[in-house]
Computed example of a mutant assay.
Amino acid sequence: MTPVVKGYRIDGDLEVDVVALQDKGVGSQDMYVLSLDKSRTDKIAEDTGITGIDIEKENNPDRVALKEKLKAIGVDDNTVATFKKDMDEDKVYLIVTDSRVKGLL
């Protein structure tokens, strides 16, 4: 299954969606948070109980490590390509691998 991915500019909006998904039975082990700011990712992960994808902002424009981590949880190449630009614009992502979320985010 291809994960459901949603970008946020406001961390609180992401946290509200995480709580709503948890209330619908989606497990924390099926949700990931990703941003280029490690402390931001860590704070959201701690506040919500979901997994933070630990990626340091790299000077490499291709961000090979980021691509590999996202592909490991099933994110396709086209979605990975959009992450680079959006993350540079300070977006944070919620990635959900539970198929029940299709249409909920």
Rank of each mutant, 00 (worst) to 15 (best):
T2Y: 07
P3L: 03
K6I: 06
G7M: 05
Y8S: 01
Y8L: 04
Y8V: 01
Y8G: 00
R9T: 02
I10D: 08
I10R: 03
D11K: 00
D11W: 02
D13E: 09
D13N: 07
L14P: 03
E15Y: 08
E15M: 12
E15G: 04
E15C: 07
D17H: 12
D17L: 12
V19R: 06
V19T: 12
V19I: 11
L21Y: 13
L21S: 04
L21K: 10
L21I: 11
Q22S: 02
D23I: 00
K24Y: 14
K24P: 04
G25H: 02
G25M: 03
G25V: 02
V26A: 14
G27A: 12
G27S: 11
S28A: 12
S28E: 14
D30E: 13
M31R: 05
S35P: 04
S35Q: 04
S35V: 02
L36N: 08
L36C: 06
L36F: 11
D37Q: 11
K38Y: 08
K38S: 05
S39T: 08
R40G: 03
R40W: 03
T41H: 04
I44E: 04
I44D: 01
A45K: 01
A45L: 06
A45D: 00
E46H: 12
E46G: 07
D47C: 03
T48V: 06
T48L: 11
T48G: 09
G49K: 04
I50A: 02
I50W: 10
I50Q: 01
T51D: 06
G52L: 02
G52H: 14
I53H: 10
I53W: 07
I53T: 11
D54Y: 09
I55V: 15
K57Q: 10
K57T: 11
K57P: 10
E58C: 13
N60F: 10
P61G: 04
R63L: 14
V64M: 07
V64A: 14
V64W: 12
V64T: 09
A65N: 10
L66W: 11
L66N: 02
K67A: 15
K67T: 14
K67P: 13
K67H: 13
K69T: 15
K69F: 15
K69S: 15
L70E: 00
K71V: 05
A72P: 01
A72F: 08
A72N: 07
I73N: 00
G74Q: 01
V75K: 00
V75W: 00
D76E: 08
D77L: 05
D77T: 06
D77H: 04
D77E: 14
N78C: 08
N78G: 05
T79S: 03
T79H: 03
A81F: 13
A81M: 03
T82Y: 07
F83P: 07
F83D: 01
K84G: 02
K84Q: 06
K84V: 13
K84F: 14
K85S: 09
D86K: 11
M87E: 12
D88G: 09
E89A: 10
D90L: 06
D90K: 09
K91D: 04
K91A: 00
V92D: 04
V92E: 05
V92K: 02
Y93A: 08
Y93T: 03
Y93S: 02
Y93V: 08
Y93W: 14
L94T: 06
L94D: 04
V96R: 08
V96T: 10
T97I: 07
S99Q: 10
S99E: 13
R100W: 14
V101M: 07
V101R: 11
